[in-house]
Design a protein around this nucleic acid. Structure first.
Length: 851
RNA sequence: GGGCGCAUAGCUCAGUUGGGAGAGCGCCAGCUCGACAAGCUGGAGGUCACUGGUUCGAGCCCAGUUGCGCCCACCA
């Protein structure tokens, strides 16, 4: 089925028309390292549903597909492979290593794309992009150069999150804080020229080797006299100025704080404002440097901590040790503890870029749904800090900056490698570092369309229509796309951002590979089918996080099955000229493929008018839900209409007519089936397309069939009321016979009092309505059940008594309400009227039963 | 420390503006009804976390309490 769509070119639109009239989506690019996980499956199902709906509406629709080179993740995978081979990236050298990664990408990178096809995703597979392909690289370099020229990009020695695992700086957003139990050491620092000591507290005694000051609060009278003096750093002997800084909390510990500008973010800030020395004792490899002193150099951090503590203990300088729970930064990428250290990195100033991106969301030009995320976005953007964009990796976009070692001219950025130094003509050397992966992701919506070239695709499909995303990348990715979109192509990258919920594991934990809690969507597809998984995911999605529900996937599978079976009933029995020549002999009882025709509704009976009316209401409602990104209710409403109203009721109502060859019934069934298939197709493309292939009105694929638009003229309130009443009566009659334990197959005699019920009532409830004669034994609504051998008199009496009880309490309830003067006075008149009507109705029934 | 969210049937979740608590699954009973037992029919099952308030009326609004979850954050 997928191949048919694909080969027909439905997913590959011409680059025509304007973004306003077209519909386009840029897929959040999966990592090349990845396999389809449940997040992709959910996200993909949502996007495909809207993409297919809009394509069916006849809009020129593009769903751009591609993958992300995912710098750190991919490099790590290949490095692991090299280790298994007994070699390393250092041994291979940069060029050979990068070649290996490319080779790896060529071999495995296509996997995830194939998996999207299994899900049924109607992406444009012919326009697939990769964040490192040639055109994309050009776009990245153009962006870098322009930001550089504007002065936003600069190089600085600054405190960064150093990840000893990946040997690279990483951004604040890639750091996760974990609660950790550490030991808080209190250490005495002797005051110079005095026998006093300042006691400082730290969980990281090894960093004391890099201390360059001790700070106290300026208002702290205990230490006023010491400010301006010095401490002597134990083990090292360095003189540490005692400084005053408002940052220090006098309430915490002794109120004295050791300052380590080289290894602590706060201390770094304090150090810069006081002009303190910055000493680094921990190297990029996570080991102590020579500056830590002979005694400690070369030790790992843990070893150094032990050694420092031992040495301090020996000197009697540790005043106390106590357990201390606090949060510690860990690398989201490698899982190792982050070392804050000072390092020469490239940064991008964000203030100017953020301002219009804040404005765009404030004004709802970019609409964030659900709306609570708007504030989260705005709060973060208003506090935005410079972005460290360099990474000490080899896999990625090498920063397009060149240095001249000969004359030491200022580094220059260029889109193409410059030949020679502009100043002295000397050889140039390109920056070794690569860009943060998110730097290239940030330009995804327009770089994939060919920017900076003025391509037809860019003209036709930018800005894109919407973005679905998990909230965890709201800052990491979404915010940056908005900034870059406004800065470069000059327009927001998408109108709507839909932040979807997270599907958790069955036990409520996070789905994660490392926890072993992941559920593989491909296995679910194997087991239940892609349609079932899609339906299940849409139906279980919500505004809040939800646990993965096997039941919802099974509900989807059941729906697919029901669609097939109900269609079989309709298509095998409907009166329509069938072409037997295409009989599919491979499958038993599968209806023949039939020649094309057209369907039109033919509302002749109230039942016809009822189902047609209900169908139009369902179309309206499901469409509204989909447009509001309320996939769960859209899916479940479509399910409920099809299953309950169409199958359980209408099909049963019209069976006799269908078997007799009633043309109106046939026409209505074909019409309803066509519209239901089209309505469900965006959510469940495979089974609907398959069933459609047997529909006599078939013209071409359902994938490009018109999406149903509700026809208000078919809404019929009168028929809805009449048939609803018949359904209600049928239900009550069935319940009644069950309660009196009437044999299921027996047709019971009854008499209609007043209005004759619709024909289906007697048939479906298995009652025969007689004109006269018989002894009434019970009243069910307007129906008197007549005595017969099949009915046990005691059971009837019990049933009638039970009903009396029900009615008495209902009457009492209504009377109580109406006796309350304040209710009658204050409640809206229609509510009061309703209550009066109930009292009357129940009262009448009770009276009837008592006679 | 700040922000956001969640507690409703055995389970997973809905519940639009305040006017008799719903779905799917599970459970019980019945059913070879000319599509479907992956089905059909009927049924049982709820102190809407707790306390107080507003209101004629509260699952829904307000205040507080308890228990969970997530995000952000530079107290050693």
């Amino acid at each position: 089925m997928f191949a048919e769509w694909f080969e027909a070119g439905y997913f590959h639109p011409e680059a025509e028309g304007s973004p306003e009239e077209n519909f386009s989506v840029a897929i959040p690019p999966p990592n090349v390292t990845g396999a389809l996980h449940m997040g992709h499956a959910l996200n993909g199902s949502m996007q495909d549903t809207l993409v297919r709906m809009n394509r069916m509406r006849g809009r020129n629709t593009l769903w751009i597909l591609g993958t992300d080179h995912a710098g750190i993740a991919t490099q790590a995978v290949v490095e692991k492979m090299l280790r298994a081979e007994g070699t390393s990236r250092q041994e291979l050298g940069r060029e050979a290593f990068v070649e290996r990664v490319w080779a790896w990408k060529e071999e495995y990178g296509a996997q995830i794309v194939e998996q999207y096809k299994r899900l049924g995703a109607s992406c444009d597979y012919e326009r697939e992009r990769f964040t490192l392909d040639d055109g994309y690289l050009k776009a990245v370099y153009r962006v870098f150069k322009q930001l550089f020229d504007k002065g936003y990009i600069y190089r600085d020695d600054y405190m960064v999150n150093w990840d000893p695992g990946t040997h690279s700086a990483i951004s604040d957003l890639e750091v996760e804080n974990r609660e950790v139990e550490d030991v808080l050491y209190s250490i005495d620092y002797p005051v110079e020229g005095s026998d006093r000591v300042l006691t400082v507290a730290t969980v990281r005694p090894e960093t004391m080797l890099a201390d360059t000051a001790v700070a106290v609060n300026p208002g702290d009278e205990r230490y006023t006299d010491l400010v301006g003096g010095y401490c002597v750093l134990p083990l090292v002997g360095r003189r540490l100025p005692i400084i005053a800084d408002g940052y220090v909390d006098p309430e915490f510990g002794t109120g004295a704080l050791k300052i380590t500008p080289g290894h602590d973010v706060n201390d770094f800030e304090i150090g810069r404002s006081h002009g303190l020395d910055e000493i680094g004792v921990i190297g990029p490899d996570g080991r102590m440097t020579d500056d830590a002193g002979e005694r400690f150099a070369g030790l790992t951090i843990d070893q150094a901590r032990e050694a420092v503590v031992a040495a301090l203990r020996e000197g009697g300088l540790i005043r106390s040790e106590e357990p201390y729970a606090h949060s510690v930064p860990y690398s989201h990428r490698s899982g190792e503890r982050i070392e804050p250290l000072i390092s020469l990195q490239w940064f991008c100033r964000m203030d100017e870029l953020a301002a219009p991106a804040i404005q765009a969301v404030e004004s709802d030009e970019v609409r964030i749904v659900p709306p609570q995320w708007k504030r989260v976005y705005l709060d973060w953007m208003r506090e935005i800090r410079p972005w460290c964009i360099s990474r000490q990796l080899w896999w990625g976009h090498r920063i397009p900056v060149w240095y001249c070692d000969a004359c030491g001219a200022n580094p220059r950025a260029a889109e193409e490698p410059p030949e020679r130094c502009g100043a002295c003509g000397g050889e140039l050397r390109q920056e070794e570092d690569v860009l943060d992966t998110w730097f290239s992701s940030a330009i995804w919506p327009f770089a994939t369309l060919g920017w900076p070239e003025k391509t037809p695709e860019l003209r036709a499909f930018y800005p894109t229509s919407f973005l679905t995303t998990a909230r965890e990348i709201l800052f990491l990715w979404v915010a940056r796309m908005i900034m870059m979109g406004i800065e470069f192509p000059g327009d927001i990258p998408f109108r709507d951002v839909y932040v979807h919920s997270v599907i958790q594991a069955r036990d409520g934990r996070r789905m994660s590979k490392s926890l072993g809690t992941g559920i593989d969507p491909l296995e679910e597809i194997d087991r239940h089918g892609a349609d079932a998984l899609r339906f299940g995911l849409l139906a279980m999605s919500s505004t809040q996080d939800v646990r993965f529900s096997d039941a919802k996937v099974e509900q989807g599978a059941d729906l697919a099955n029901k669609l097939w079976n109900a269609s079989r009933l309709i298509l095998l029995n409907v009166k329509f000229k069938q072409d037997q020549s295409h009989t599919n002999s491979a499958q038993d009882q599968v209806p023949a493929r039939v020649s094309p025709g057209t369907t039109e509704p033919r509302p002749e009976t109230p039942e016809d008018r009822w189902i047609l009316s209900r169908l139009e209401r369902t179309i309206t409602s499901v469409t509204e839900k989909l447009e509001a990104y309320d996939f769960a209710h859209a899916a479940q409403e479509a399910y409920a209409f099809f299953w309950s109203e169409l199958c359980d009721w209408y099909l049963e109502m019209v069976k006799p007519r269908l078997y007799e060859g009633d043309e109106a019934a046939s026409a209505n069934l074909l019409w309803a089936l066509e519209r239901v298939l089209a309505l469900l197709h965006p959510m469940m493309p495979f089974v609907t397309e398959e069933v459609w292939s047997f529909h006599p009105a078939r013209r071409g694929h359902l994938a490009v069939h018109g999406f149903p638009e509700a026809d208000r003229s078919l809404i019929d309130v009168e028929a809805e009321e009449e048939v609803s009443a018949g359904i209600e009566l049928t239900r009550r009659l069935r319940a009644w016979r069950d309660l009196v334990e009437a044999p299921a197959a027996t047709i019971l005699p009854a008499r209609a009092e007043g209005v004759e019920p619709r024909e289906f009532v007697g048939r479906l409830a298995r009652f025969a309505f007689e004109e006269n004669g018989g002894t009434p034994v019970a009243a069910v609504g307007p129906v008197s059940v007549l005595a017969s051998e099949a009915i046990d008199a005691d059971a009837v009496r019990a049933r009638v008594e039970a009903r009396r009880e029900e009615l008495r309490s209902e009457v009492a309830r209504a009377e109580g309400k109406l006796a309350n003067e304040r209710f009658v006075a204050n409640a809206p008149p229609e509510v009061v009227a309703e209550e009066r009507e109930k009292l009357e109705r129940y009262g009448a029934e009770l009276k009837g039963l008592s006679e």
